[in-house]
Simulated assay, not measured.
Amino acid sequence: MAVAGAEKKNLRILSGMRPTGRLHLGHYFGALLNWIEFQSSHESFFTIVDWHALTTKYQNTKEIKNNIWEIALDWLCVGIDPDVATIFVQSAVPETAELHLVLSMFTPQNWVEREPTLKDMVKMLAANEEEAKEKVTYGLLGYPVLQTADILVVRGGLVPVGRDQESHLEFARDVARRFNHLCNVDYFPEPKPKFTPTPVLRGVDGQKMGKSYNNDIKIADTEEDTIKKVKQMITDRTRIAKSDPGHTDLCEVPWPMYRVIKPELTRQVKQECESAAIGCVACKSRLGEAINDFLAPFREKRRALEKDPDRVRKIIEHGNIKARKEAKKTMDDVYEIIGLPRWNN
């Protein structure tokens, strides 16, 4: 049986996000901007992976449903186009769980235990080995296999990743390769990394921007909240007085933010900062306005979508149907390959 993901000239893209809340600027520049580019050149499937959220949020699941909605709004308002890309929810495609189960039968235990994704998830969940014994579930142990099933169930051939994440994708390639080898077929594509520029945006406190640090600027923030957050940004710690010349290379948050939000201003900002022509307070005030100007069209579109929930629901449902159609085809093929009957199909 031929490789299923090779029907298209350009391999199919698959990527997703866990529904943990509204998205921030780090998500936009680190992932969504690349997705917007890919959707015009590749058949693209973008999934909200709610089952993955359960691996760490199983004790507090009430927010997941609303967070699915929030992520869909954010994706649509920044330019993910449902007319050319498929937006779907993981749990709306039960064949993903089916494939996860089948692949788990082919995956050696020690592969899972040494997988970097799992190790990262355990670190997020538990501070030490004793706590891990209490909090790490069977579902979390299977996280890498479920992640592989997400990709292979739609026969994804390319996965957008930064170079620091390539090892996470290696697991999926190994599983696809092992299935093909043991079943003597050339069915599943071995997912390749689609390397993307992933600038690491710092949050207002100088750490990597993240919801868990409460240091992010969200796409859906109000203009007032954005200005308030920008005022808290860590600048050049060596600059004591406004009259002191600043150092853009030591400016921890505003300077890197200018470079991605308003690059055409960076020459002016550098000259004014390093000649003490402007103080940090005024510089951050201008940056806040620039961020609000940048996000204004997204926020306007998001507010319109919030007022039309039926439209958003139909977009998701259409994507769910399209993704499930592909997943059913995959599972029909998989059952034929492994020699099991396909009941009630």
Score class of each variant (00 low, 15 high):
279 G>E: 07
16 G>F: 03
317 E>A: 14
76 L>R: 08
318 H>M: 14
283 C>M: 12
298 F>R: 01
173 R>T: 02
267 R>M: 14
51 W>G: 02
307 K>P: 05
345 N>A: 13
202 R>C: 15
119 K>M: 12
188 F>S: 05
293 D>N: 13
52 H>P: 05
326 E>H: 07
45 F>T: 09
118 L>R: 08
149 A>T: 04
272 E>R: 09
33 L>C: 01
164 D>T: 06
150 D>P: 09
225 D>H: 13
225 D>L: 15
191 P>C: 10
194 K>I: 11
259 R>W: 07
312 V>L: 08
18 R>G: 03
195 F>E: 09
108 P>L: 09
256 P>H: 03
289 E>H: 11
280 C>T: 07
168 H>G: 00
232 Q>A: 11
335 Y>G: 00
274 E>G: 06
183 C>M: 13
271 Q>W: 13
318 H>K: 15
19 P>Y: 03
154 V>S: 07
137 T>N: 04
271 Q>H: 15
66 N>W: 11
109 Q>N: 12
103 L>K: 00
17 M>S: 02
7 E>F: 01
330 T>V: 01
58 Y>Q: 09
110 N>C: 05
199 P>E: 10
243 S>N: 11
34 N>W: 03
176 A>F: 03
48 I>S: 02
108 P>C: 04
292 N>E: 06
24 H>N: 00
330 T>G: 01
204 V>W: 05
7 E>H: 09
231 K>A: 15
249 D>Y: 12
